[in-house]
Every structure is written in structure tokens, then in C-alpha cells.
Design a protein around this nucleic acid. Structure first.
Lengths: 336, 336
DNA sequence: GCAATTATTGACAGCGCTGTCAGTCTGCAT
DNA sequence: ATGCAGACTGACAGCGCTGTCAATAATTGC
């Protein structure tokens, strides 16, 4: 038989309400009372019923993570962070994958409407869907976007992708590279544009003319990195000396093609990626890349949803990135 | 203003209970009534309140996924499968990471006690924790283990790890290998023992004497694969001609060491892994490995929890695996 | 010492839904 | 016509908790 609040109340000789107050850490309970209630609750192995609590307080203590992301390592990192924040506040994390295309369809509204959570975390590329954010607003659901681009009307947790790409490119230039190829990410992702922007800005500031031919399409997948690399490296007489891929998977694709073509990395070709996924350390040579505080972003996002203070003024939280220099770029022209 | 069942009932001119019946697909409702209620519900944009429903029916429509798994790709695959099953039945998936060590501590009981879900999915290595399963039983929580080893007292979804390892090893032997190294998985995982068993059985049946020196410890991490490989390949005069790593990450570690030592794969060394994670296709040469139906396992596990029929006789569901032969083993002694 | 606060507690009414059970209404065999 | 199973429907209580508000006790200031 499961113990209820009533049981605890009787046993402790107080009212249900007082037990409730103790259990929710509300103020204005005498220390002695509080202790007694806690003790009884423990001895009875009392466990609050989430559903009842939710019904009475019209809170669900649930946060949903909405995502459509091919990268397992990205999504599990976000999850870890978000769950950490949830745990600290008695919340739980619900998983809701949603294909990007579906985000713009009526299905999305139905799914979300049924959800009944206290908040929603949006990850790229869903965080870039205006339609989805409209639905959320219409449904009056609190939400925070994990997104690279700025949006003033929404709570957001972000990282300065453009600046990171700028710094990485600048680093390559400092290594003596002037012929730098760039592989774009998936067009649905806001990060794709931001990273490109940073790349081009760096070239620009260094007075290097942009070679449009050396900006190659991609979609964040290993395979697309392979294709892009095949294109970029196709002409033996006119190759970039460095390739900056918009993520690590594609960078791994580049390295694989380089290997096959007998182009040694980093001696003949520097390669760098973005995200610092586990693969960056598994491939050889290890990959220079940008580390994102993904875990922290998940944490922050959930924390914003849980904290009830001034829920109306949208807060934007920008976290730091870090350039991780590894072997794959330690062979620039300057070293020769 | 959110519509409730009462609103729908009024509008449709029926009782709340009838609306409830329609919404839950219960029998014994006239088609005309059903249609009318559906229509009104749609027009009012009615969305059931999970908490209320849960409170009244003492079901939560929530399933928790308990895990402690370093492999992002494994866990996201399980998640995908489980969510698919949940979606089909109006359930949602809760994420609950739990370190293996914690599973044996009182904390686990507290965490689980508070959970209030209708079922719990256990993934390796948690599925191997007897303590954890005891807690679950004591708490009277339905659960199903995703686990390689047999347990008669629990619902389980499994794959025959031993048989898979047996077949893979046999395949290597058929390629002409007689000197085969083996890298163990993490000792906490039941799969580790099963895979070893299959490996040894295959050697045995082929009449090959087991060389204990060539069974090397590991923990499923890339790094441990590197260490194991350094050990296995340390003696140039006496090396295995094939290495079977208990998972893909470690196999990648082997390939990386082989590359560094100038041992070409697969010409001088065949390598195979287990799991068919994305990395198997990213490294070069691509990895021969065992594909597990991880997605399907998640699906099955959630389905078992959701289906209420004969909940007492534990069902064990064994799914098929598949040997995936890729380049990394296409160079056995027989080919020379 | 007495009024004005403030701290502490409890009674009670639901939150929105479903389970129970009793009722009405059909069709069909007698 | 009469009875009866089965299909259909509704009244009602209550799931376990919290919000509201009123009641009482403790504390303060003068």
C-alpha cells in the first residue's frame, strides 16, 4: 500500500496542508514541525504522486526536449545537461524527436498540444523554425531555443558560431594558409550560415580573396564531407592547403578522402572541424576543432525553463567556445 | 482558455463519461455519438490533461529509460525505438541516466520511488544489476531489461551475443586465421562475458588452442582498444593475424595502432568489431562487425511495458543479429 | 501591557479525468 | 405480447494533491 499525504499527516499529527508545505520547501513552517513531518514521511516511505501534484498545481514537472538531430553525441550531451538541471529541481525530461519537415505541419501542433509539459527545449535545426516557435507561442508553452542565431523574441541559449569560425579561420591564416576550402553544413541549420559568415569575414580581414569554388555544399554527414572533399581536392594542380569543415563528421570525410588520394594530413593538407565530437580524437591525425559547451547549453536551457522569475523578458545566454588545436592542422606552409 | 472534457460533453450533448469513452477508444459507443464527440473535440481543440487522466486512472502514460552507457549511438538508437512504441500508444519517454555504481546504492531506490512511471526500460549494464532489479520488484514497478544474458524472472529483450561472437570468430577462422586476438569489453557488462564465451567456443570447435595472452582487457572505450592493441601487437615476431574487439570503438583503437605501427589492415591484420556503430563506416578500411537491432530492441522493450496482457509471465524476446562483412577483414591468410 | 504584525497552521474545495454501477433502449427469441 | 441479453449512456464519487483563505499562536513596538 502506497502512503499518501493523508497518512503522513495523520501520523505526524498535522494537516495535509502542512505536510504539503514541508514537502515543497515552502516557508512558514516551524522547524520542529518540519523535522517531524520529514521523519514520518521517510519512515512511511512516502513518495509524492506526480500526477496528483500536477493536477492540483497545474504544473507537470516535466520538460520536453524537441530535437531532430542526426548527431548522437550532440543530442546525448544536451540531454545530460538538461537532465542535470531537471534533477536539481524535481523535474523530469521527456524526449520528443520531431523531423524538421514535420515542424511546419499541423501534426506538430497536435503533438505539442497533447504534450502538457511545463517547458520545451528546442535544438537545432528546430530552433530555427519560425513556424514551430509560432505554434509554441500560440499554445502558450514556455520554450527556450538552443540556437546559434539571435532571436530577440525567445529565450535562447547560444554560442557565437560566427566568431568561432572566424577565429578558426584566422588561426589557419596565421599558419600560413591562403588557399582554404570550406565545407558548408546542412542548409536547414542556422549554424551553417553563421559559420560561413565567420569564415568569410576572416578571409576578408586578411585580405584574401574568396574563392567561391572552394566553398562546397554539405549536410553535416560524413558522406557529404567525402563528396565535398572529392570536389575540393579533384584538381592536383590547384588545391587548397587547408580545409575547414563545418563539423567533425565532414572533416573526418575529408581526411578519409585525403588518405585515399595519398595527400598526407597535416603535411600537405590541414583539416579542421567543428563541435569536438568524440570522433575528433578517434581519427588520425586527431582533429583540430571547436569545442562547444553543449552539455552546459542543455543545462542552461532547462534551468531557464524551470526558473519562474520574470518569464516575460526573453533572456539570451551566450556561452563560450574553445578552439582545440590538434595534429590535423600542425603542418601549415609556414612550417615548411 | 483550455477546453476540458466537460466543455466537450456539453457541446456534444452527452455525458463526460461518454466523451471519455470516445477519447479512449472504448467499445460500446454508437458510431453517431462517437463521430459527433470527435468533431466537437476537434473544433474545441480539446487536449486531454495527462495529469488528470493519470490521477484518475492511476496510470502515468510515462515510461522511463534507465541507462548508464557511454555510447551515444547505442543510447539514441534505443531511445528512437522506445519512443516509436510510445507514440503509437499515447505514451511518452522519460530519460533517467543512472551511474552503475549508484544502482546499488539507496539513492537508486529514492530516485526510482519518486519516478511514478508505468514502466522502466533497463539498458546494459544496469540490466545486469541484480540489486536494481530487486529494487524495482520491491517497488512493484514493471520493467524490462535489454540484456544479453538470460534471466527467467524478468521481461527481457535480448540478442544472442554469444552466438554472434561465435559466428564472427568462425568467420575469421574460415578466412584462414588461427592466431586471433580478442579484446574484452567492460567487466560490468554482461555482454562482455557472452561475447568472450562465443569467441572461445568457436576456437574450441575449430580445434585451435586458446592463447590467454591474446585475450586482452578493455572497457569498450576507444582508448582501451588502443592500449589492448599496443599489447597484442607489441611483439613483431609473434602477432595475431586477426583481432576481434568486443565493440567498434575498441576496434577503431586497434586500427589506429596498426596504422601507427605500419601494420596494414586488412593485408597484415584483420580487425573486426561489434555493434555496427556509425564509426564502423567512417574509419578506413571500413569495419567488419556485428549489427545489433538496437532500434528494434528499444521498440520491443517499450511495447512489452505498454501492453497490459499477461504481465506476470515474463517474456523473453530474442532478436536477430547480422554479420556485416566489410573491408577490414578481407585479407586473411587464405587470400595470400 | 496591549494593539499591530508576522509566523504558523488547518478546513475545504476543487484540479480534470476515469471507474463503478445503475439505468435506458434496442432487437430477438419465446 | 413478454422477457431478456446485450448495446449504449449517464450520475457520481474520488484519485492525491495544492491554492485560498481564515484561524490561531508567537512576536514585536511603544
Amino acid at each position: 500500500m502506497k502512503a499518501t499525504i493523508t497518512d503522513v499527516a495523520k501520523q505526524a499529527g498535522v494537516s495535509m496542508k502542512t505536510v504539503s508545505r514541508v514537502l515543497n520547501n515552502e516557508p512558514n513552517v516551524a522547524k520542529a514541525t518540519r523535522d517531524r513531518v520529514m521523519e514520518v514521511a521517510a519512515s512511511l516511505q512516502y513518495r509524492p504522486n506526480l500526477a496528483a501534484r500536477g493536477l492540483a498545481s497545474s504544473k507537470s514537472y516535466l520538460i520536453a526536449l524537441l530535437y531532430d538531430n542526426a548527431s548522437a553525441s550532440y543530442i546525448t550531451n544536451i540531454q545530460r545537461g538538461a537532465i542535470e538541471a531537471c534533477r536539481r529541481n524535481g523535474y523530469h525530461l521527456l524526449l520528443e524527436p520531431m523531423p524538421y519537415e514535420q515542424a511546419n505541419s499541423p501534426e506538430a501542433e497536435i503533438l505539442l498540444g497533447r504534450l502538457g509539459v511545463d517547458g520545451v527545449i528546442l535544438t537545432p535545426p528546430l530552433s530555427d523554425s519560425v513556424v514551430l516557435r509560432d505554434i509554441l507561442r500560440r499554445l502558450d508553452m514556455r520554450h527556450v531555443a538552443v540556437a546559434p542565431n539571435k532571436m530577440d523574441d525567445v529565450h535562447a541559449v547560444r554560442m557565437d558560431d560566427a566568431e568561432a569560425a572566424f577565429q578558426m579561420t584566422t588561426y589557419l591564416i596565421e599558419q600560413g594558409h591562403r588557399d582554404i576550402g570550406f565545407i558548408l553544413g546542412h542548409p536547414n541549420h542556422g549554424a551553417t550560415a553563421s559559420r560561413r559568415l565567420g569564415f568569410e569575414k576572416a578571409l576578408n580581414e586578411a585580405g584574401i580573396k574568396l574563392n567561391e569554388d572552394w566553398i562546397s555544399a554539405g549536410d553535416f554527414s560524413f558522406r557529404s564531407g567525402v563528396q565535398a572533399a572529392e570536389h575540393l581536392l579533384s584538381n592536383p594542380d590547384n588545391r587548397p592547403t587547408a580545409i575547414f569543415a563545418s563539423n567533425d563528421d565532414m572533416a573526418a570525410g575529408v581526411m578519409s578522402v585525403a588518405g585515399r588520394l595519398g595527400i598526407s594530413v597535416p603535411e600537405a593538407l590541414s583539416v579542421c572541424g567543428f563541435d569536438d565530437t568524440p570522433i575528433a580524437q578517434i581519427i588520425w591525425p586527431q582533429l583540430t576543432t571547436v569545442a562547444q559547451p553543449i552539455h552546459k547549453m542543455g543545462f542552461k536551457a532547462a534551468s531557464i525553463l524551470i526558473s519562474r522569475d520574470n518569464p516575460d523578458d526573453p533572456k539570451i545566454c551566450t556561452l563560450d567556445f574553445e578552439l582545440i588545436i590538434r595534429e590535423s592542422t600542425l603542418g601549415g606552409p609556414l612550417l615548411k
